[in-house]
Amino acid sequence: MTKRTPPHPSDDLPDLPVKGRGTLSNRSGRFEATNNQRVDDGWPGQGEDPPPSPRTRLGIDAARKIITRNDSPDVPFDRSINPYKGCEHGCVYCFARPTHAYLGLSPGLDFETRLFWKPNGVDLLKAELANPRYRCAPIAFGTNTDPYQPIEKETRLMRGFLEVLTGCAHPFSIVTKNAMVCRDIDLLAPASAANRARVTLSVTTLDRHLANKMEPRASTPMRRIDAIRRLRDAGVSVSVLAAPMIPGLNDHEMEDILAAAKDAGADSAGYVLLRLPLEIKDLFREWLEAHVPDRAAHVLSLIRQSRDGGLNHAQFGTRMRGTGAYADLIAQRFKLARKRYGLDGRSLAMDCTSFRPPAKPSAQLPLL
């Protein structure tokens, strides 16, 4: 009888693409004492077939406040609302993935399959806006995870937030990759006409096949472009965000993305260079090696050239744009394309003077 030996680290099995999901692996977050890894235990055929796609699970986020504050010097807002933790869109490059580690979950597959929402979110928002100490300023949605990810069809939480904000004339902005935003045109159009709403569609690529691998459950690129057209036709101020631009992978599409958005009616544009903080570096590297192995080394090399020799840096002022010759070239191309297509005309200022706090909930029953 042949004696079997315990698995050795060199027997690690490579993670395989999971249909309908962005990342390949589900390694533990950085705060966990142990790490899970598939290994070859000697059985024939092990690791040859891709694993089944895990189902999406929705849990409760027992939040006591709904508005998140920030003092970051390189974002144009100081408060935001994130309806969901985790994001089913599965964008492999998502900079929010590391936040799942705070929940004891993996920034990998857990991030896109273990979601959390705030069932009491609408009531929390009403209470915060009704506080006498509250001072009105635009609230940003989509700054961490997408407010219009597929689970929104069931919860309608984002719809509830918009009903509160439009009901009290509070300004807000939205960034999304989902054409579902058009569902709420009836609320967005009058708010935009009063200079209290801005919508931005994030378009990473016009290549449907690349998008299917890189952001598998987001709306297809053409549906996002069509959403720009539908919003604009309804009178909504709408922008395009070419993000993230990934050196050597999709950055050559930047001008085409801006041109398509302009043709659809966008009035302004922005871009962000790929960011790979914390666990995302390894998740993105393994994605490259699985889906574009012939370009993986080149893409990583260009990223390092744009990030002071590393795969990420978090310095305010340069974290969104990068540094070095390659990052400067992308910046110059964007500047010229934005001017060429007239996508630099939108002001970020919104009307905060019409805000009317919602009525406080009362324990006393009405007389009639």
Rank of each mutant, 00 (worst) to 15 (best):
T34I: 03
R38Y: 10
P6T: 05
R27H: 12
N36S: 11
P44N: 06
P54I: 09
L24G: 01
D15W: 13
F31H: 14
G42Y: 05
R4D: 01
E48F: 07
D40L: 04
T5S: 12
R21T: 03
D49I: 10
T2L: 10
A33H: 13
G59D: 02
N26K: 07
L24N: 08
T23G: 01
K19D: 11
G59E: 09
P51T: 04
D40Q: 01
E32V: 05
F31W: 15
N26E: 03
P54E: 08
D41G: 07
D12L: 15
L58W: 06
P17H: 01
Q37K: 08
R38H: 05
P9C: 08
R38S: 02
Q37I: 13
T5F: 13
Q37P: 00
T56M: 06
R55Y: 03
T34Q: 05
A33F: 09
P9T: 02
G47D: 09
P50Q: 11
P50E: 10
F31N: 09
R57V: 14
D15T: 03
A33S: 12
P51H: 07
A33G: 02
G20H: 09
P44L: 08
P54G: 03
L16P: 02
V39E: 00
R57P: 00
R4E: 02
H8E: 07
D11L: 05
R30E: 14
S10I: 12
G42V: 10
G29A: 07
L16M: 15
I60A: 00
D40N: 15
T34P: 00
P52Q: 00
D12F: 14
R21V: 01
L13R: 01
N26M: 12
T34E: 08
G29P: 12
P17T: 04
P9A: 04
V39F: 11
P44R: 03
P7C: 01
T23H: 09
P6S: 12
P14N: 08
G22P: 04
P54T: 08
H8T: 08
N26S: 14
Q37A: 10
T23W: 01
T34L: 15
V39L: 11
I60Y: 10
P14H: 06
L16N: 04
T2A: 10
V39G: 00
Q46I: 14
Q46Y: 02
T5G: 00
S25H: 00
D49W: 06
V18N: 06
P54F: 13
P14S: 06
L13A: 01
P54K: 01
Q46N: 10
K3T: 10
R21W: 07
R57F: 14
R55K: 11
D15M: 13
W43C: 00
P52T: 02
R27C: 08
